[in-house]
């Protein structure tokens, strides 16, 4: 056992197993009938066994695979995306989209001073008037 276990891999397995454990626990608490557990119980059991196999295989590996770079930038954009998704129905589809697209272009390397906000404004307008008009649901907007 000489290999290293990347933190992001441990995080993924931890999250996956925690979710699995929670879903299994909730299913067991709801009912222990065969009909209720027919998929979740065997799948959760196999997930546990597979996780063990994956961990052992990774630790046995002599050369640990290098973790891909750029995790921080990705996480910043992911966090921004999560906030944007929440803000859509709380701030307004128009403003949330405008701010997210503008910031996203700048974070992704857009250098011009005026093109990103102009593009974000035109794009948001097109989405609200085009995409939004096709929604069969009410859509919250702040400005448009």
């Amino acid at each position: 056992m000489s290999g290293r276990f990347p933190a992001s891999h441990a995080a993924f397995l931890g999250i996956a197993l925690a979710i699995t454990g929670f879903i299994l626990w909730s299913a067991l608490s709801a009912s222990t009938s065969l009909n209720n557990l027919i998929v979740v119980a065997p799948a959760a059991l196999l997930l546990g066994i597979l996780a063990l196999c994956i961990v052992v295989a990774a630790l046995r590996k002599q050369d640990a695979e290098p973790a891909p770079a750029g995790a921080l930038g990705d996480l910043v954009l992911l966090a921004g995306f999560g906030i944007f998704c929440y803000a859509l129905t709380h701030v307004g589809f128009d403003v949330a989209t405008f701010v997210f697209v503008w910031a996203g272009i700048v974070v992704s390397g857009g250098r011009s001073l005026w093109v990103p906000p102009l593009y974000a404004a035109v794009f948001s307008l097109a989405l609200v008037k085009g995409f939004g008009s096709l929604f069969p649901y009410p859509m919250l907007t702040l400005v448009l």
Binding site: L88, F100, G104, I105, L127, G132, F135
Partner: peptide
Amino acid sequence: YLVPSVLAMCAWGGY
């Protein structure tokens, strides 16, 4: 330009 635009459309699509 493509990445934030399509990401925004993904969220809109979810809604």
